[in-house]
Amino acid sequence: MKKLLFSGLFVALLLAGFAQKPYKVMFYNFENLFDTIDDPEIYDSEFTPGGPKRWNSVKYGKKIRNLERVLFDLAAMDKNYPAVIGVSEIENRSVLEDVIAQPKLAPANYRIVHYDSPDARGVDVAFYYRPDVFKLEGSAAIPFTMEELPDFRTRDIVTMWGTIEDEPFYFMVAHWPSRLGGKEASAPKRRRAAEIMRRAADSVLAINPATKVVMMGDFNDDATDASIVETLGAAGNIRKIEPGGYYNPYIDVLKAGYGTLAYQDAWNLFDNIVVSENLATGSQGELKLQKAPGARFYGNIFRTPYMIQKEGQYKGYPLRTFVGNNFQGGYSDHFPVYIYIGK
C-alpha cells in the first residue's frame, strides 16, 4: 500500500512540475517491437510463438515493461515526461498503444502519429506526443523513393506539425536504410533518405521561416558521415550556422567518444536529433535549444546501468532483447537520445 501511495504521489509531482521545466524531445529505437500475431502481409514470422525466437506473450510483456521503465526513468530524471518521442522498429499502432498504456506512462496522456510503411519486415516509425504541450495541426508520411531502385521498400518518413507555446514546429522521424551489403555499397540509399528529409524541411522553411524544424531518427550513419553532414546539411558548430541551416548536437557527442550502439567493440552514433538554425540559436521566437544543467553538450544520451550488458562477449554494450535467437530480456540495441527546448 505504501508503495502504491508513493507511486501515485510521484506521478502527481511529475504532472505538477511540467510547466516549470524545459521540454524534452526524444528519439528511441525500440528494437523489433513486434506483437506475437503472424501477419501474412509482412515477414514477421521470426517474432511469433512458432518462429525461431519463440516470441510469446511473456517475452512481449517483458519487452513492453522494459520500455516503460526506460521512458519513465527518463521522465523521472527531472520530473518531466518528454513532450515528443520519435520511435522506430515498431510493427504497428497496437504495440505503440501497449507501451503508453503502462501504468507509469498513462498519466502523460500521450497521443500517437503512425502510418503503416511498405517496409518488407513491417517495421515503421512513429511519434508519441503530449497534447498539453504540442498542439497537433496535421501529419503525413513521406515515402522513400529512389529512381535507380524502383522496387526497394523501406520505412516512410513520418512528419507532424503544430505548435508549442504558439510557436510553429515541424517534426520528422525516420529510420534510414541499413548498411546491409556494406557501408559504402548501401550509402546511396541513405544519401537519398537525407535528400528527401532536407527537401521537405527546406520547403517548410520556405513557406514560413519561423517554423522550427526537428529531424530525428536512426540514420544508420554516424553524426559525422557525409549523408548527415553534407546531404542533410547538419553542421556541428552552433556558432557558425546560418539562417536556413541545420545543427546536429550529436557531432560533438560522437567526437567526444560517446555512442548509442556498439559493433565489433566500437561505438557508433546512428541516433540523431537535428534542428533548424532558428531553434538552435533562438533567432526567431522564444523557444530554443538548451543544455541540461551541468551538461557539456546540447545532445544527450540516456543510459543507465540496467540498460548495459554486464558480462559475456557483449559486455558493456546496450542490453538487447535477443542475441541471435537467445532471449536476453533486455531493452534495445540502441540507447535513446534527447534534447531540451525552452526559454
Rank of each mutant, 00 (worst) to 15 (best):
V11K: 12
K24T: 03
L232K: 00
A262W: 13
R69S: 14
N109E: 13
Q309A: 11
Y331I: 07
A266H: 15
P40D: 08
G181T: 00
G257K: 03
R192Y: 06
H334Y: 07
N268V: 05
L180P: 01
E137Y: 02
V158Q: 04
T224K: 11
A200D: 07
G8W: 14
I238M: 09
G86F: 02
F30Y: 13
A120R: 14
G122E: 06
K53H: 10
S88F: 04
A12F: 15
Q284R: 14
P150W: 07
P243C: 03
R93N: 09
L33E: 00
A234E: 06
A185G: 01
T321I: 13
M197C: 10
F144K: 03
P40R: 09
A106H: 14
Y43E: 14
E41Q: 15
A187Y: 12
V275W: 05
M77T: 09
T231D: 13
G244E: 00
R153M: 15
T224R: 13
R130C: 08
W176L: 07
K212N: 06
A185R: 06
F134L: 02
L279S: 05
E97A: 10
I90N: 13
F127P: 03
G257V: 07
K288I: 06
S117K: 09
S227I: 01
S186I: 04
I142H: 07
P22G: 00
R190C: 10
L71G: 01
I301R: 00
A235R: 10
V253R: 00
G217V: 00
E46A: 15
P168I: 01
N208K: 08
D78E: 12
A76C: 12
E167F: 04
R155G: 04
A185N: 05
K288V: 05
F10K: 14
F335S: 04
A126E: 04
S88E: 01
N220T: 09
L4E: 13
G61Y: 04
A256E: 11
G138K: 11
P168M: 03
R296M: 13
A200G: 02
Y250C: 05
A200I: 04
F10A: 15
Y263K: 08
L14N: 13
V173I: 08
A185H: 02
D202K: 02
F270S: 08
F72I: 06
Y81R: 01
E89Y: 00
G61M: 02
A201P: 00
V214T: 05
I308D: 09
K315E: 14
G182N: 02
S276G: 06
D202A: 03
I341R: 03
G299I: 06
V25N: 01
M215V: 07
K240V: 11
Y129R: 03
P150V: 05
V25P: 02
K79L: 13
Y258L: 12
N80Y: 04
A106Q: 14
P249E: 06
Y258N: 10
M197D: 04
V95M: 10
I228L: 10
V25L: 09
R198K: 14
Y298K: 00
K310E: 15
Y258C: 06
V11A: 15
Y60T: 06
A185L: 11
A83I: 00
D156G: 02
T304D: 13
Q290D: 12
A200K: 08
A292R: 07
R111C: 05
R296N: 11
G50R: 10
G330F: 07
Y23V: 04
